[in-house]
């Protein structure tokens, strides 16, 4: 009873706040750069470090996350009014796990080689914090359109982050981009870039650059 009472109080508060909550378009834009899940929120770093050795697997991962995040966010948003607060994490996990399993089986059936290359990282999307975070922040509070737009925006931001790291690592590590040679044959492949340390180097430097650009910008705006 106590829990139900609190939940009701929460909902009334939310009702008052609803007007201030971001619109679907704002949610969409925020996900891409201003609240980028990787560079801003530092969430979901496991795939960021693990599957950015080449562009193809990075983009497959981004696609898988887009599908799972979109479906999970929309479903959570649809059932948000009948969702009990103390059971919400169970429901989030259940929903996410279902869609991840669908992606995993789909890849094994229709993109067999890619599924072999990504190995355990597809099932690991279940524990990707970006998704459970978006369900909590947006899906369980806003309507379907905001949730859908939020999912797409955040996934695009995630894809952008993966692409930026994978491009650097694949080009320097193998001289290729999407499996096509872009540097000359003489390029001495920097194997370290394809190895796990390369992921840390690249991510650290890019994150630094991201923050540096941001600090210059905010100084210019006079807000920093």
């Amino acid at each position: 009873m106590i829990l139900r009472g609190r939940w009701a109080a929460n909902r009334i508060q939310q009702g008052n706040k609803m007007a201030e909550e971001p619109t679907p378009f704002e949610r969409f834009v925020q996900g891409i750069v201003p609240e980028n899940p990787v560079y801003r929120q530092l969430l979901g770093l496991c795939p960021v470090l693990a599957v950015t050795g080449d562009m193809k697997s990075a983009m497959t991962m981004a696609g898988a996350v887009l599908f799972v995040l979109f479906c999970a966010n929309v479903i959570v948003s649809l059932i948000r009014n009948i969702l009990k607060p103390h059971l919400r994490i169970v429901v989030f996990t259940l929903t996410i796990a279902t869609f991840v399993t669908i992606v995993d089986r789909f890849l094994a059936a229709y993109m067999y080689n890619m599924s072999k290359a990504l190995g355990p990282y597809i099932p690991l999307i279940i524990v990707n914090c970006i998704i459970i975070c978006r369900c909590e922040v947006c899906g369980s509070k806003q309507n379907v359109f905001a949730a859908g737009a939020d999912a797409i925006g955040q996934s695009l931001g995630f894809a952008l982050a993966l692409a930026s790291i994978a491009a650097v690592r694949e080009i320097l590590g193998t001289g290729m981009f999407f499996g096509v040679r872009v540097l000359t044959e003489n390029w001495p492949d920097w194997v370290i870039m394809a190895l796990p340390p390369g992921a840390f180097f690249t991510f650290g430097l890019l994150l630094g650059a991201f923050n540096w650009v941001d600090s210059i910008r905010s100084k210019k705006d006079g807000t920093g």
């Binding site: 059932i79 009948i82 969702l83 009990k84 059971l87 169970v90 429901v91 259940l94 929903t95």
Partner: peptide, 9 residues
Amino acid sequence: QAWLVLILA
């Protein structure tokens, strides 16, 4: 209380 979880499952 968990009816929703059960139905979803």
